[in-house]
Design a binder for these strands. Structure first.
Lengths: 184, 184
DNA sequence: TCACCCATGTAAGGGGTTACATGATTGC
DNA sequence: GCAATCATGTAACCCCTTACATGGGTGA
Protein backbone atom coordinates (compact mmCIF):
# COMPACT_ATOMS: atom_id res chain seq x y z
CA UNK A 1 0.00 0.00 0.00
CA UNK A 2 1.63 3.22 -1.09
CA UNK A 3 0.87 6.44 0.76
CA UNK A 4 -2.34 8.22 -0.11
CA UNK A 5 -1.98 11.49 -1.96
CA UNK A 6 -3.54 14.55 -0.37
CA UNK A 7 -6.50 14.50 -2.78
CA UNK A 8 -7.00 10.79 -2.18
CA UNK A 9 -7.59 11.49 1.51
CA UNK A 10 -10.44 13.87 0.92
CA UNK A 11 -11.90 11.72 -1.88
CA UNK A 12 -11.99 8.57 0.23
CA UNK A 13 -13.47 10.52 3.10
CA UNK A 14 -16.15 12.08 0.91
CA UNK A 15 -17.11 8.73 -0.60
CA UNK A 16 -17.38 7.19 2.84
CA UNK A 17 -20.27 9.59 3.46
CA UNK A 18 -22.01 8.32 0.33
CA UNK A 19 -21.51 7.59 -3.39
CA UNK A 20 -20.71 10.65 -5.43
CA UNK A 21 -19.69 11.93 -8.85
CA UNK A 22 -16.39 13.78 -9.24
CA UNK A 23 -18.40 16.95 -9.53
CA UNK A 24 -20.26 16.08 -6.33
CA UNK A 25 -17.00 15.54 -4.46
CA UNK A 26 -15.79 18.93 -5.59
CA UNK A 27 -19.06 20.53 -4.46
CA UNK A 28 -18.87 18.90 -1.05
CA UNK A 29 -15.25 19.97 -0.56
CA UNK A 30 -16.03 23.54 -1.57
CA UNK A 31 -18.77 23.75 1.02
CA UNK A 32 -16.88 22.22 3.89
CA UNK A 33 -13.23 21.18 4.03
CA UNK A 34 -12.10 23.83 1.58
CA UNK A 35 -11.10 26.12 4.43
CA UNK A 36 -8.47 23.69 5.63
CA UNK A 37 -8.17 21.16 2.77
CA UNK A 38 -8.91 22.27 -0.77
CA UNK A 39 -9.12 20.18 -3.95
CA UNK A 40 -9.54 21.09 -7.62
CA UNK A 41 -10.98 19.27 -10.65
CA UNK A 42 -7.46 18.92 -11.99
CA UNK A 43 -6.71 16.75 -8.98
CA UNK A 44 -10.03 14.99 -8.42
CA UNK A 45 -10.74 13.45 -11.82
CA UNK A 46 -7.28 11.96 -12.45
CA UNK A 47 -7.10 10.71 -8.86
CA UNK A 48 -10.49 8.97 -9.12
CA UNK A 49 -9.05 7.00 -12.05
CA UNK A 50 -5.95 6.04 -10.12
CA UNK A 51 -7.98 5.03 -7.08
CA UNK A 52 -10.12 2.82 -9.29
CA UNK A 53 -7.02 1.24 -10.83
CA UNK A 54 -5.65 0.45 -7.39
CA UNK A 55 -9.01 -0.96 -6.30
CA UNK A 56 -9.90 1.53 -3.55
CA UNK A 57 -12.83 2.95 -5.51
CA UNK A 58 -15.33 1.51 -7.96
CA UNK A 59 -17.61 3.41 -10.28
CA UNK A 60 -20.69 2.91 -12.40
CA UNK A 61 -22.21 4.93 -15.19
CA UNK A 62 -25.53 6.34 -14.00
CA UNK A 63 -26.67 8.89 -16.56
CA UNK A 64 -29.37 11.39 -15.62
CA UNK A 65 -31.41 11.77 -18.76
CA UNK A 66 -29.03 12.32 -21.66
CA UNK A 67 -26.32 13.65 -19.37
CA UNK A 68 -23.48 11.19 -18.80
CA UNK A 69 -22.60 10.66 -15.17
CA UNK A 70 -20.25 8.38 -13.29
CA UNK A 71 -20.94 7.61 -9.65
CA UNK A 72 -18.08 6.46 -7.44
CA UNK A 73 -18.18 4.44 -4.24
CA UNK A 74 -15.68 2.98 -1.81
CA UNK A 75 -14.64 -0.68 -2.10
CA UNK A 76 -13.90 -2.62 1.12
CA UNK A 77 -10.21 -1.99 0.38
CA UNK A 78 -11.00 1.71 0.09
CA UNK A 79 -12.77 1.74 3.43
CA UNK A 80 -9.78 -0.03 4.99
CA UNK A 81 -7.36 2.48 3.43
CA UNK A 82 -9.44 5.35 4.82
CA UNK A 83 -9.34 3.87 8.32
CA UNK A 84 -5.61 3.19 8.08
CA UNK A 85 -5.05 6.81 7.20
CA UNK A 86 -7.32 8.05 10.00
CA UNK A 87 -5.31 5.93 12.44
CA UNK A 88 -1.90 7.03 11.18
CA UNK A 89 -0.26 9.39 13.61
CA UNK A 90 1.57 11.83 11.34
CA UNK A 91 -0.51 14.80 10.24
CA UNK A 92 0.77 17.74 8.27
CA UNK A 93 -0.16 21.25 9.29
CA UNK A 94 0.84 24.03 6.94
CA UNK A 95 -0.12 27.66 6.98
CA UNK A 96 0.43 30.54 4.55
CA UNK A 97 -0.70 33.71 6.24
CA UNK A 98 0.26 36.75 4.22
CA UNK A 99 -1.27 39.15 6.72
CA UNK A 100 1.02 37.80 9.41
CA UNK A 101 4.04 38.03 7.10
CA UNK A 102 3.21 41.67 6.50
CA UNK A 103 3.00 42.23 10.23
CA UNK A 104 6.39 40.57 10.65
CA UNK A 105 7.95 43.20 8.39
CA UNK A 106 5.77 46.10 9.53
CA UNK A 107 8.77 48.04 10.86
CA UNK A 108 9.21 49.22 7.26
CA UNK A 109 6.06 51.32 7.65
CA UNK A 110 5.14 54.21 9.95
CA UNK A 111 3.17 53.02 13.02
CA UNK A 112 -0.18 54.30 11.72
CA UNK A 113 0.16 52.06 8.70
CA UNK A 114 1.27 49.13 10.80
CA UNK A 115 -1.98 49.53 12.72
CA UNK A 116 -3.94 49.56 9.48
CA UNK A 117 -2.19 46.35 8.50
CA UNK A 118 -3.37 44.53 11.63
CA UNK A 119 -6.85 45.94 11.21
CA UNK A 120 -6.87 44.54 7.67
CA UNK A 121 -6.01 41.11 9.05
CA UNK A 122 -8.80 41.52 11.60
CA UNK A 123 -11.27 42.34 8.82
CA UNK A 124 -10.12 39.25 6.95
CA UNK A 125 -10.98 37.06 9.93
CA UNK A 126 -14.34 38.80 10.38
CA UNK A 127 -15.18 38.23 6.71
CA UNK A 128 -14.32 34.57 7.18
CA UNK A 129 -16.59 34.48 10.23
CA UNK A 130 -19.47 35.78 8.14
CA UNK A 131 -18.95 33.05 5.57
CA UNK A 132 -18.72 30.36 8.21
CA UNK A 133 -21.77 31.76 9.95
CA UNK A 134 -23.81 31.42 6.76
CA UNK A 135 -22.71 27.80 6.42
CA UNK A 136 -23.51 27.10 10.06
CA UNK A 137 -27.00 28.54 9.68
CA UNK A 138 -27.58 26.33 6.65
CA UNK A 139 -26.60 23.06 8.31
CA UNK A 140 -29.39 21.47 10.37
CA UNK A 141 -28.44 21.02 14.00
CA UNK A 142 -28.79 17.38 14.88
CA UNK A 143 -28.46 16.26 18.43
CA UNK A 144 -27.53 12.90 19.81
CA UNK A 145 -24.33 11.60 18.26
CA UNK A 146 -21.38 13.90 17.69
CA UNK A 147 -21.52 15.69 14.35
CA UNK A 148 -17.88 15.81 13.26
CA UNK A 149 -18.26 18.14 10.27
CA UNK A 150 -20.11 20.57 12.52
CA UNK A 151 -17.37 20.23 15.12
CA UNK A 152 -14.85 21.28 12.46
CA UNK A 153 -17.03 24.24 11.56
CA UNK A 154 -17.14 25.29 15.21
CA UNK A 155 -13.36 24.99 15.33
CA UNK A 156 -13.07 27.33 12.34
CA UNK A 157 -15.43 29.82 13.93
CA UNK A 158 -13.65 29.75 17.27
CA UNK A 159 -10.25 30.07 15.68
CA UNK A 160 -11.22 33.06 13.58
CA UNK A 161 -12.88 34.72 16.53
CA UNK A 162 -9.73 34.28 18.55
CA UNK A 163 -7.60 35.67 15.70
CA UNK A 164 -9.88 38.66 15.10
CA UNK A 165 -9.80 39.57 18.77
CA UNK A 166 -6.05 39.15 18.96
CA UNK A 167 -5.72 41.57 16.05
CA UNK A 168 -7.97 44.11 17.73
CA UNK A 169 -5.84 43.96 20.89
CA UNK A 170 -2.59 44.14 18.89
CA UNK A 171 -3.83 47.19 16.98
CA UNK A 172 -4.54 48.93 20.28
CA UNK A 173 -1.11 48.07 21.61
CA UNK A 174 0.62 49.43 18.52
CA UNK A 175 -1.50 52.58 18.61
CA UNK A 176 -0.80 53.19 22.28
CA UNK A 177 2.89 52.76 21.68
CA UNK A 178 2.85 55.14 18.73
CA UNK A 179 1.15 57.83 20.83
CA UNK A 180 3.74 57.36 23.56
CA UNK A 181 6.56 57.69 21.05
CA UNK A 182 5.00 60.79 19.53
CA UNK A 183 4.90 62.55 22.92
CA UNK A 184 8.60 62.12 23.45
CA UNK B 1 5.72 46.28 -11.94
CA UNK B 2 4.62 42.69 -12.03
CA UNK B 3 3.31 41.07 -8.87
CA UNK B 4 5.86 39.81 -6.40
CA UNK B 5 6.17 36.04 -6.10
CA UNK B 6 5.64 34.54 -2.68
CA UNK B 7 9.38 34.03 -2.14
CA UNK B 8 10.09 37.57 -3.27
CA UNK B 9 7.95 38.88 -0.43
CA UNK B 10 9.94 37.17 2.26
CA UNK B 11 13.27 37.92 0.57
CA UNK B 12 12.58 41.65 0.31
CA UNK B 13 11.38 41.68 3.89
CA UNK B 14 14.46 39.84 5.13
CA UNK B 15 16.82 42.15 3.26
CA UNK B 16 15.07 45.19 4.68
CA UNK B 17 16.28 44.04 8.11
CA UNK B 18 19.85 43.95 6.83
CA UNK B 19 22.08 42.66 3.99
CA UNK B 20 22.20 38.89 3.79
CA UNK B 21 23.44 35.94 1.77
CA UNK B 22 20.94 33.49 0.29
CA UNK B 23 21.95 31.07 3.00
CA UNK B 24 21.39 33.74 5.63
CA UNK B 25 17.90 34.45 4.30
CA UNK B 26 17.08 30.77 4.51
CA UNK B 27 18.38 30.61 8.07
CA UNK B 28 16.33 33.61 9.13
CA UNK B 29 13.17 32.23 7.55
CA UNK B 30 13.67 28.85 9.21
CA UNK B 31 13.91 30.49 12.61
CA UNK B 32 10.96 32.81 12.26
CA UNK B 33 8.44 33.01 9.45
CA UNK B 34 8.69 29.33 8.58
CA UNK B 35 5.62 28.57 10.67
CA UNK B 36 3.42 30.69 8.44
CA UNK B 37 5.58 31.41 5.38
CA UNK B 38 8.22 28.88 4.37
CA UNK B 39 10.91 29.17 1.66
CA UNK B 40 13.44 26.70 0.30
CA UNK B 41 16.84 27.05 -1.40
CA UNK B 42 15.21 25.97 -4.63
CA UNK B 43 13.14 29.13 -4.47
CA UNK B 44 15.53 31.58 -2.82
CA UNK B 45 18.61 31.38 -5.06
CA UNK B 46 16.81 31.63 -8.43
CA UNK B 47 14.58 34.40 -7.07
CA UNK B 48 17.55 36.45 -5.87
CA UNK B 49 18.82 36.38 -9.47
CA UNK B 50 15.49 37.51 -10.84
CA UNK B 51 15.17 40.28 -8.26
CA UNK B 52 18.61 41.53 -9.21
CA UNK B 53 17.69 41.47 -12.90
CA UNK B 54 14.60 43.55 -12.20
CA UNK B 55 16.59 45.94 -10.06
CA UNK B 56 14.96 45.35 -6.67
CA UNK B 57 18.08 43.80 -5.19
CA UNK B 58 21.79 44.33 -5.66
CA UNK B 59 24.61 42.06 -4.59
CA UNK B 60 28.33 42.08 -4.02
CA UNK B 61 30.86 39.32 -3.65
CA UNK B 62 32.20 39.39 -0.10
CA UNK B 63 34.22 36.21 0.42
CA UNK B 64 35.04 35.09 3.95
CA UNK B 65 38.52 33.68 3.65
CA UNK B 66 38.57 31.32 0.70
CA UNK B 67 34.85 30.77 0.92
CA UNK B 68 32.87 32.51 -1.82
CA UNK B 69 29.99 34.55 -0.57
CA UNK B 70 27.47 36.91 -2.16
CA UNK B 71 25.74 39.48 0.02
CA UNK B 72 22.44 40.95 -1.15
CA UNK B 73 20.83 44.25 -0.21
CA UNK B 74 17.73 46.17 -1.18
CA UNK B 75 17.88 48.91 -3.79
CA UNK B 76 15.63 51.97 -3.38
CA UNK B 77 13.29 50.33 -5.92
CA UNK B 78 13.32 47.21 -3.77
CA UNK B 79 12.40 49.17 -0.66
CA UNK B 80 9.57 50.82 -2.59
CA UNK B 81 8.34 47.44 -3.84
CA UNK B 82 8.35 46.10 -0.29
CA UNK B 83 6.28 49.03 0.94
CA UNK B 84 3.87 48.73 -1.97
CA UNK B 85 3.31 45.11 -1.09
CA UNK B 86 2.88 45.88 2.63
CA UNK B 87 0.24 48.46 1.70
CA UNK B 88 -1.64 46.23 -0.74
CA UNK B 89 -4.90 45.06 0.72
CA UNK B 90 -5.24 41.51 -0.62
CA UNK B 91 -3.60 38.87 1.55
CA UNK B 92 -3.82 35.14 0.99
CA UNK B 93 -4.53 32.86 3.89
CA UNK B 94 -4.26 29.15 3.23
CA UNK B 95 -4.32 26.28 5.63
CA UNK B 96 -3.71 22.55 5.27
CA UNK B 97 -4.64 20.89 8.53
CA UNK B 98 -4.61 17.12 8.21
CA UNK B 99 -5.65 16.60 11.82
CA UNK B 100 -8.80 18.59 11.20
CA UNK B 101 -9.51 16.66 8.01
CA UNK B 102 -9.25 13.44 9.97
CA UNK B 103 -11.67 14.81 12.54
CA UNK B 104 -14.06 15.75 9.74
CA UNK B 105 -14.24 12.10 8.69
CA UNK B 106 -14.00 10.63 12.19
CA UNK B 107 -17.44 9.02 11.92
CA UNK B 108 -15.63 6.19 10.13
CA UNK B 109 -14.03 5.22 13.45
CA UNK B 110 -15.45 4.06 16.78
CA UNK B 111 -15.81 6.95 19.28
CA UNK B 112 -12.78 5.91 21.34
CA UNK B 113 -10.57 6.28 18.28
CA UNK B 114 -12.18 9.58 17.35
CA UNK B 115 -11.15 10.81 20.79
CA UNK B 116 -7.60 9.60 20.21
CA UNK B 117 -7.57 11.52 16.95
CA UNK B 118 -8.42 14.82 18.65
CA UNK B 119 -5.89 14.13 21.38
CA UNK B 120 -3.28 13.60 18.66
CA UNK B 121 -4.12 17.02 17.24
CA UNK B 122 -3.86 18.47 20.73
CA UNK B 123 -0.39 16.93 21.15
CA UNK B 124 0.61 18.42 17.81
CA UNK B 125 -0.27 21.89 19.05
CA UNK B 126 1.52 21.29 22.35
CA UNK B 127 4.65 20.18 20.49
CA UNK B 128 4.45 23.35 18.44
CA UNK B 129 4.12 25.36 21.67
CA UNK B 130 7.32 23.81 22.97
CA UNK B 131 9.18 24.79 19.83
CA UNK B 132 7.81 28.31 19.91
CA UNK B 133 8.62 28.59 23.60
CA UNK B 134 12.26 27.74 22.91
CA UNK B 135 12.41 30.43 20.25
CA UNK B 136 10.74 32.95 22.54
CA UNK B 137 13.25 32.24 25.29
CA UNK B 138 16.11 32.78 22.85
CA UNK B 139 14.96 36.17 21.60
CA UNK B 140 15.94 39.07 23.86
CA UNK B 141 12.97 41.04 25.14
CA UNK B 142 13.39 44.64 24.10
CA UNK B 143 11.03 47.23 25.40
CA UNK B 144 10.15 50.58 23.96
CA UNK B 145 9.14 50.28 20.32
CA UNK B 146 6.88 47.46 19.16
CA UNK B 147 8.81 44.36 18.19
CA UNK B 148 6.86 42.99 15.22
CA UNK B 149 8.63 39.64 14.88
CA UNK B 150 8.00 39.02 18.56
CA UNK B 151 4.37 40.01 18.11
CA UNK B 152 4.07 37.33 15.42
CA UNK B 153 5.64 34.82 17.76
CA UNK B 154 3.11 35.69 20.45
CA UNK B 155 0.36 35.27 17.89
CA UNK B 156 1.62 31.77 17.10
CA UNK B 157 1.79 30.88 20.78
CA UNK B 158 -1.68 32.21 21.51
CA UNK B 159 -3.17 30.47 18.50
CA UNK B 160 -1.68 27.10 19.37
CA UNK B 161 -2.77 27.45 22.98
CA UNK B 162 -6.28 28.17 21.85
CA UNK B 163 -6.23 25.19 19.48
CA UNK B 164 -4.78 22.80 22.08
CA UNK B 165 -7.44 23.78 24.59
CA UNK B 166 -10.19 23.48 22.03
CA UNK B 167 -9.00 19.94 21.30
CA UNK B 168 -9.01 19.05 24.99
CA UNK B 169 -12.59 20.28 25.33
CA UNK B 170 -13.68 18.51 22.14
CA UNK B 171 -12.14 15.24 23.32
CA UNK B 172 -14.13 15.50 26.53
CA UNK B 173 -17.33 16.19 24.65
CA UNK B 174 -16.83 13.18 22.38
CA UNK B 175 -15.98 10.98 25.34
CA UNK B 176 -19.00 12.09 27.32
CA UNK B 177 -21.22 11.43 24.34
CA UNK B 178 -19.72 7.98 23.82
CA UNK B 179 -20.42 7.04 27.45
CA UNK B 180 -23.99 8.25 27.10
CA UNK B 181 -24.46 6.17 23.94
CA UNK B 182 -22.94 3.11 25.60
CA UNK B 183 -25.43 3.27 28.47
CA UNK B 184 -28.44 3.20 26.15
C1' DT C 1 40.46 14.71 12.90
C1' DC C 2 35.75 15.11 12.84
C1' DA C 3 31.48 17.19 13.14
C1' DC C 4 29.08 21.06 12.29
C1' DC C 5 28.14 25.26 10.25
C1' DC C 6 28.61 28.44 6.26
C1' DA C 7 27.66 28.88 1.45
C1' DT C 8 25.93 28.27 -3.54
C1' DG C 9 23.41 26.16 -6.64
C1' DT C 10 20.53 22.72 -9.67
C1' DA C 11 17.55 18.80 -11.20
C1' DA C 12 13.76 16.02 -10.73
C1' DG C 13 9.41 15.44 -9.50
C1' DG C 14 5.14 16.08 -7.03
C1' DG C 15 1.35 19.18 -5.84
C1' DG C 16 -1.95 22.37 -7.15
C1' DT C 17 -4.58 26.13 -9.67
C1' DT C 18 -6.68 28.16 -13.65
C1' DA C 19 -8.68 28.17 -17.75
C1' DC C 20 -10.61 26.10 -21.33
C1' DA C 21 -13.62 22.84 -24.09
C1' DT C 22 -18.01 20.65 -24.20
C1' DG C 23 -22.56 19.81 -23.47
C1' DA C 24 -27.20 18.49 -20.99
C1' DT C 25 -30.82 19.79 -17.60
C1' DT C 26 -33.65 22.63 -14.63
C1' DG C 27 -36.28 26.42 -13.21
C1' DC C 28 -37.73 31.06 -13.89
C1' DG D 1 -35.00 31.99 -23.91
C1' DC D 2 -31.62 32.47 -20.38
C1' DA D 3 -29.04 31.68 -16.39
C1' DA D 4 -27.58 28.54 -13.19
C1' DT D 5 -26.29 24.11 -12.15
C1' DC D 6 -24.81 19.44 -13.27
C1' DA D 7 -21.09 16.95 -15.28
C1' DT D 8 -16.43 15.38 -17.30
C1' DG D 9 -12.11 16.12 -18.49
C1' DT D 10 -7.35 18.12 -20.01
C1' DA D 11 -3.33 21.27 -20.81
C1' DA D 12 -0.43 24.70 -19.40
C1' DC D 13 1.73 26.53 -15.91
C1' DC D 14 3.40 27.85 -11.35
C1' DC D 15 4.84 26.65 -6.81
C1' DC D 16 7.54 24.13 -3.80
C1' DT D 17 10.22 20.41 -1.64
C1' DT D 18 13.83 17.12 -1.60
C1' DA D 19 17.98 15.56 -2.66
C1' DC D 20 22.15 15.98 -4.45
C1' DA D 21 26.80 18.04 -5.66
C1' DT D 22 30.50 20.78 -3.93
C1' DG D 23 33.57 22.77 -0.92
C1' DG D 24 35.78 26.04 2.86
C1' DG D 25 35.93 27.45 7.84
C1' DT D 26 35.68 26.76 12.96
C1' DG D 27 36.03 24.74 17.33
C1' DA D 28 36.32 20.69 20.42
Amino acid sequence: MTELSSVAKVILGALQLGPRTGYGIKRMVDRSTRFFWAASYGQIYPELRRLEETGLVESASEPRGGRPRRVHRLTPAGRAALRDWLRSDASTHEVRDEGLLKLFFASALPPSEAVELVRAKERGHRRMLERLGVIEAGVPRRDGRVDFPRLCLEYGIGLNEWAAEWCARAAERIEANARKEARK
